[in-house]
């Protein structure tokens, strides 16, 4: 027996950076309040920079809400930003402000990104994006995500080291060669 398989595979509703033709697909299940995901954030950027067009990157929500009190609303804020067309800007803002993720701050980030802040406030109050976040979470559980961050390279769970960018790159390149 070996590692998990991304289930379901990436589809239109996913947040994806990069081309469908890229030989490598990296998917992260992450939590905006998780310190390890915060550690992974610049590493993923570095890997993206190195691999350029050869990589597409997708992010799915996996908030551990009982451990991280702001994680759920942060994820919902990113999803609301996605509806307003600015997912990645919000994604980056959240990881760059991991210790400032209460509702007031989330609404402020929306305003700073030029989004409709009152829509953001209502979306958070009403839990409008909660079903989407839960869907991501459940897909993660079914895919064998056992903590955050969990990465999948071309659909297979990556259990190796991601904390060292060069090791992570080697693993990605090795997958590309066998793709």
């Amino acid at each position: 027996m070996s590692g998990g398989q991304l289930t379901p595979p990436l589809a239109d509703g996913d947040h994806i950076l990069g081309s469908d033709d890229a030989p490598l697909t990296l998917v992260e299940y992450g939590d905006y309040e998780c310190p390890y995901c915060g550690m992974a954030y610049p590493i993923v950027k570095e890997v993206q920079q190195h691999l350029g067009d050869r990589l597409r990157f997708a992010f799915r929500n996996f908030p551990l809400t009982e451990s991280h009190p702001h994680a759920e609303h942060a994820a919902e804020a990113a999803e609301e930003a996605a509806v307003q067309g600015r997912f990645w800007e919000m994604h980056d803002t959240l990881f760059e402000h991991q210790r400032a993720l209460d509702d007031t701050q989330l609404v402020r980030y929306a305003a700073e990104l030029g989004l409709d802040a009152s829509e953001m406030e209502r979306a958070l109050d009403e839990g409008r994006r909660a079903p989407r976040v839960r869907r991501d979470f459940r897909s993660g559980v079914r895919s064998g995500v056992n903590g955050t961050p969990t990465f999948f390279i071309n659909g297979r769970r990556y259990d190796g080291d991601w904390t060292d960018p060069s090791a992570f790159l080697r693993a990605l390149r090795a997958t590309a060669e066998h793709a």
């Binding site: 998990g4 398989q5 459940r138 079914r142």
Partner: peptide, 27 residues
């Protein structure tokens, strides 16, 4: 994933809107 798959085969589909089933592979 293992326990959820086992639970699903024991109880049958739940009221929860489950996404497509994952493989039964384990760590």
């Amino acid at each position: 994933d293992g326990i959820l798959n086992a639970l699903e085969s024991l109880v049958g589909g739940s009221a929860a809107s489950q996404p497509a089933r994952a493989g039964r592979e384990m760590p």
